[in-house]
């Protein structure tokens, strides 16, 4: 339902993504991992056309994202309304939450229901409250976003996306801006979504989450998909030296700072 074919992205002279081929099935959970600067966030943002990719194609449920075919065969940037239309089944959750601080928690969730879906106020309110209930924050409906903890804000952001009932959700390092003790509550919500069959693409540094929730893990380095496969295979038996080194660094960091390295949990 989400597919990239030969996608490339350059910033000036610098190639950030090269010849990315990727196909994501319904209800599949895919985690993108890789060192910083590997292009994983850019890949995710390109899949949502927040970055406009230069070559190749991205299809969302069979529709070309971001470009239209002109009559002479060349492709042109889609009009904004067309872009929104192709993106209508996509939700996105950002590292910095990006809640709107001038609206209450409930208003944040209701805004797009009212203005994009054109729902009636009562119906939007009911749906928004139900979705907040799902992420465990119904009682914070009237709070201002900045009064919430980072973990709560991110859960509101998830609810805001979820209320639009997307078929696929993209997560861009959803826990990287959080204090360590708040990471769990967000991962818990994401795990619950995965179990309900949501299609998800997640850029993350949380190897434990990738190991336990992902159906497939993609390892990116220098703009290439270097290796992919089920998490167990990848983590236990890395084929490329780069992935081995990446996992090694990760393990070392964790064994230095945490009593129980996350990778041990792969075995449970």
């Amino acid at each position: 339902m989400l597919e990239a074919r030969g996608m490339s992205k350059r910033f000036g002279e610098h190639t950030v993504l090269q010849d990315i081929n990727l196909s994501i099935q319904r209800s599949e959970v895919v985690c993108l991992i890789g060192p910083s600067g590997s292009g994983k966030s850019t890949l995710l943002r390109s899949l949502a056309f927040l970055e406009n990719y230069d070559d190749g194609e991205v299809f969302v449920e069979g529709e070309l994202l971001g470009y239209d075919r002109a009559s002479d065969g060349r492709r042109v940037r889609s009009r904004p309304s067309r872009l929104s239309d192709v993106r209508r089944n996509m939700g996105m959750v950002f590292q910095q939450f990006n809640l709107w601080p001038h609206l209450s928690v409930l208003e944040n969730v209701m805004e797009a229901l009212l203005r994009v879906r054109g729902m009636k106020k009562d119906a939007a309110r009911r749906l928004a409250l139900a979705t907040l209930e799902k992420v465990g924050l119904a009682e914070k409906a009237d709070a201002w976003p900045n009064r919430l903890s980072g973990g709560q804000q991110q859960r509101v952001a998830i609810a805001r996306s979820l209320a639009m009932s997307p078929a696929i959700m993209l997560f861009d390092e959803p826990t990287s801006a959080l204090d360590p003790e708040l990471v769990g509550e967000v991962l818990q919500v994401m795990r619950q979504l995965a179990e309900e069959g949501m299609t998800m693409v997640v850029v993350t540094h949380e190897m434990g989450f990738a190991a336990r929730v992902a159906d497939r893990v993609l390892f990116l380095d220098q703009g290439h998909i270097v290796e992919q496969g089920p998490p167990m295979t990848l983590f236990k038996n890395p084929q490329s030296p780069r992935l081995a080194q990446f996992l090694g660094n990760y393990l070392e960091r964790n064994s230095l700072f945490e009593a129980a390295p996350a990778l041990n949990r792969v075995d449970d």
Binding site: L50, G91, M92, F94, L99, E111, R160
Partner: peptide, 12 residues
């Protein structure tokens, strides 16, 4: 990011 979030939700 606030604009991006709004754009992803379909706002014009």
């Amino acid at each position: 990011g606030q604009q991006e979030a709004a754009a992803m939700l379909g706002m014009t």
